[in-house]
Each structure stands twice: as structure tokens, then as C-alpha cells.
């Protein structure tokens, strides 16, 4: 029962009960965000270090705000301005930060598994804020929270994930999470961006956007990572837009009228999604961002409470 762990590293090792506890706590946290004074004293005296070795605006700011809303002290460390440039190893950097009596480290790193590596070697709690192409658990949790607010149940919910699935840690965590909750998932992308090794996850594959759209409750659009186009996964961006860009016209023609659109951001308007849809009533994009702060408050609270009480065993 309940979340009783030091670290939050991935959706893979979370039970349904743990996911539910994070979401329920997050719903209560969301109430704090609606107050005139958006702050509770809960994490007074807890220090959080945000170690971001990859660029981020949304996730970093969301974590920073979550920390501030709960009155934790936080420091931000980015690769560009740290001794990583002087040749310090990841572990040395983390151990030095820990030596300053930091309780929680939020880690984003381009190397898959680096938060796991740190978690094993540190006393501090480690939260994975994205490790390479592996997992991005807090994003998946905020997505699941956003879906939960709009649908009574995950059972038989039909969700299509469309776009650069190969490079997306968001999709990996989301698939794991949604499968646990009981949703039906269809992945849609050009063959080069749709790795077949995802088949054991129990998802359907579809190469045609037109065939993917009908009957879905949610369309989850992923960002085309333009920086990776030089690796020639796509013949050209124009061809991708022609075949896979979600336009208003395609949406009205093929998708259900009640369909909702999600996107983890940042949006490339006019590439994976037409500007008009991103701003339409179909879009949950900004709801996702709001849920993000609440989910991160919830995780910070649950991990640090365990710390305060000590583990049950």
C-alpha cells in the first residue's frame, strides 16, 4: 500500500496503487495552486537540488515552482554553468551537492539510467526528470492526471500516440503508465520512427494517420525532434508534415467529435500539429502544464515524508 520508496525513477517499477496515491495527493495539491497565497509550509527545511544536464524550460520551472509552493529550499544546477565543464564526473557532482545536506535531487541527463545510477549511490532521494531516450515519469504522471480529470475510467479508453516515438522518453513512460491503468494504445508514426521492439508492451501499430484517427478518445501528439533530422529518419520534414501533421481538416474528417488533444511540449506549430488545433477547445496542452506542478508537488511530498518517518522496514 502507498508510496514507500526513496526514489522515483520510472513508471516501470510503480504499482497501480502507487500511481493512484500520487494522483490523489496531486489533486489535493492542486487546490493550493488556486489559493490567493499559493504556498503551504509543508516542506520547510527540505532542500532540493535540480540537476539539469540537458536543456529544459517546462520541467525545470515546473519542479522549481512545485518546490517553492511547498516551501522547500531549492538550487538549480545546469551543465552549462557547472564543474561538469571542468571534467567532474556525474557522481562527484552529485556527491558534492549531497554533502551540502541536500535531501532531494531532481535529475535530467542525456544518458539513460543515470538517475538510477545516482539513486543507488546517494542517500538523497532521486527523481528522474528525463534520462535520455528511457523514461520521463513525472511527465507521464501529469498526463495520466490530466486524462483522469476528463474521463471517468481508463478501462477501454482509446489513446493514439502519434509522432517521433523512437526518440521519445515521454512515450515510453506514457505507454507503461497507460497500460498499467488499462487503456488501449495505438502508436502511429512512419516506420523509421516506430520501433518494433515496443510490440511486447501490448500496443497496436499503425502507419497511417487517417486510419489511426477514427474512434480515439485522445490523440497524444509528440514533438518532431528537428535536431535529429540529420540522422535521416525522415526523407524530409515536408513529407512528414504532409502525411503525419495533425491538421484541423484531418481532425474534423476522421476523428471523433469529442476527441481531446495532448502534447508534452514544446509544440512545433505547423509541423506535428496545426496551430489552430493547439489553441482549440480540443487541446488539453495547458491543462497538462498545470497538472505538472501539482504532480511534482505530490511526488516531492510523498518521497520526503517517507524520509521523515523512516522506511517501514
Amino acid at each position: 500500500m502507498g508510496l514507500d520508496r526513496k526514489d522515483l525513477l520510472g513508471i516501470q517499477d510503480l504499482s497501480i496503487d502507487e500511481i493512484e496515491e500520487i494522483l490523489t495527493t496531486a489533486e489535493h495539491m492542486e487546490e493550493i495552486l488556486t489559493r490567493p497565497i499559493k504556498k503551504a509550509p509543508t516542506l520547510r527545511g527540505i532542500t532540493v537540488a535540480n540537476l539539469f544536464f540537458e536543456p529544459s524550460t517546462r520541467t525545470l520551472n515546473s519542479f522549481t515552482l512545485a518546490e517553492k509552493r511547498l516551501s522547500a529550499d531549492s538550487i538549480n544546477l545546469s551543465a552549462a554553468s557547472s564543474s561538469v565543464l571542468k571534467g567532474e564526473t556525474l557522481l562527484d557532482t552529485a556527491k558534492n551537492i549531497q554533502a551540502m545536506e541536500v535531501d532531494v535531487m531532481v535529475v535530467r541527463h542525456s544518458m539513460p539510467g543515470s538517475p538510477h545510477f545516482l539513486a543507488k549511490r546517494l542517500k538523497a532521494s532521486v527523481i528522474n526528470a528525463g534520462d535520455g531516450c528511457h523514461e520521463h515519469p513525472t511527465q507521464a504522471l501529469l498526463d495520466i492526471m490530466t486524462i483522469k480529470k476528463n474521463f471517468p475510467s481508463f478501462k477501454d479508453l482509446k489513446i493514439a500516440i502519434i509522432g517521433d516515438i523512437k526518440h521519445s522518453r515521454v512515450s515510453r513512460s506514457l505507454i507503461l503508465g497507460l497500460k498499467k491503468m488499462g487503456a488501449k494504445i495505438t502508436l502511429c508514426a512512419p516506420p523509421t520512427l516506430l520501433p518494433l521492439w515496443l510490440e511486447p508492451f501490448g500496443v497496436e501499430f499503425e502507419y497511417s494517420l487517417e486510419k489511426t484517427l477514427p474512434g480515439k478518445d485522445i490523440l497524444y501528439i509528440l514533438r518532431i525532434q528537428k535536431e535529429r533530422q540529420e540522422e535521416s529518419f525522415l526523407p524530409s520534414l515536408r513529407e512528414y508534415i504532409k502525411n503525419y501533421s495533425l491538421t484541423y481538416e484531418k481532425l474534423r474528417k476522421f476523428a471523433s467529435k469529442e476527441v481531446l488533444i495532448m502534447h508534452p511540449g514544446p509544440i512545433n506549430r505547423g509541423i506535428e500539429i496545426e496551430s489552430r488545433i493547439a489553441d482549440s477547445e480540443y487541446s488539453l496542452v495547458l491543462n497538462q502544464v498545470t497538472s505538472g506542478v501539482a504532480v511534482r508537488m505530490s511526488i516531492l511530498y510523498l518521497l520526503t515524508q517517507r524520509k521523515l518517518y523512516g522506511s517501514k522496514d
Binding site: 502507498g2 490523489t24 495527493t25 489533486e27 489535493h28 495539491m29 487546490e31 493550493i32 503551504a40 509550509p41 509543508t42 511547498l70 511530498y301 510523498l302 515524508q305 517517507r306 521523515l308 518517518y309
Partner: peptide, 23 residues
């Protein structure tokens, strides 16, 4: 009022309190 987030004994007593909503 749910005062869980304002408790001063979060460090002392177990088990971990479950949060409810304030309205």
C-alpha cells in the same frame, strides 16, 4: 479545512498522513 500540510508533527508521528482537500 485539511491541516495535514500545515502540521508541525510531520516529523514525529507515523504513519504517513493522507492528505485531504481544503475547501
Amino acid at each position: 479545512l485539511d491541516i495535514t500540510l500545515y502540521r508541525d508533527d510531520l516529523t514525529i508521528y507515523g504513519p504517513k498522513p493522507i492528505i485531504g482537500s481544503t475547501y
